[in-house]
Amino acid sequence: MNTPQELRELVFEVLSGIAPEADPTTVDPSADLRDELDLDSMDELNMITRVSERLAIDVPEEDYQRMRTVDGAVDYLATRLATRRT
């Protein structure tokens, strides 16, 4: 679970659990998810909780802002996973 494509799929999967009526794959990957999917802070926390549990990594609060777009989340998670393995 560490190629960008796999991470992207994971993010989509988690998002479809949080906003089931939206099709995450139609989301502009560079747009703010809170606007695109109408996420509130509880949704955001749930998303981060689920992603971090699935990947067994911590996402500190100060990094939440890096998870606000699909592209940003994929980049951030890839970086976190890479640093964990070194």
Binding site: S41, L45, E53, P60
Partner: peptide, 17 residues
């Protein structure tokens, strides 16, 4: 809130609300 949350996994963090 940040200090409280810093030591916790996301599942146990507080929201300011």
């Amino acid at each position: 809130v940040s200090e409280t949350n810093a030591g916790r996994p996301p599942a146990r963090r507080l929201l300011p609300a």
